[in-house]
Amino acid sequence: MANESFIKARNLVKKYGSTTILEDISFDINRSEVLVLCGPSGCGKSTLLRCLNGLETIQGGQIWIDNVELRGASQKELRALRQRVGMVFQMFNLFPHMTTLKNIIIAPMKLLNKTKQQATEDAMRLLEIVGIPEKVDEYPCALSGGQRQRVAIARALAMKPDLMLFDEPTSALDPEMKEEVLNVIERLRTEEKMTMVLVTHEINFVKNVADRVMMIEDREIVEESSAKTFFENPKEERTKIFLKAITDL
């Protein structure tokens, strides 16, 4: 099965009650590929990310992550899957009652049975990568937004994930802090060859890191193409309107 896509979604349907949020969504993502999701606010980007790690149940279609079919998976299998899928949120969602170190080591210790020493060594290495080893003993309340987001990335990476999901990781940050977080994500791509699905509207960043861009609007995929085509030669009228709207910001 070596040629199978790492993520495969077929005819995915997501509803909340009787409201359909996503309908007939199909796509593939290969290992080490970076897919950027975009679309107007409320179109279901966050919902789709949550579907990809089984935090949301879907009402139709199928999703495979590394050949695990999510709808048929047990709770135990889903938890095992989530351990391998890192998620980074717009508002960071760090655990405020834990220091930076504890935020990073708690999951590897409790879920991967690492000793405190092993987990701490790994955490320090990750803090070097995200550039804030000196913040190891601080509580989240003492960190800036950009530092919080970098700790959140380190926390997700500590589980050694095969896939990282980013939900607007920089939209709550000031411009200079955006840069420090985007640099970390870019390094994940170039140095770790991490498979990533990103929701972001940072156009220059997307042009640099995205292999493909997928735009969602009105429950469906409007356009899916290489980053170059998407920005330079969009096929769909709705894509052009959307691109104009976000560049005018």
Partner: peptide, 11 residues
């Protein structure tokens, strides 16, 4: 969101 962050780690 605390719930979500925790579940997403696999807890």
């Amino acid at each position: 969101t605390q719930n979500q962050a925790s579940l997403s780690l696999g807890f």
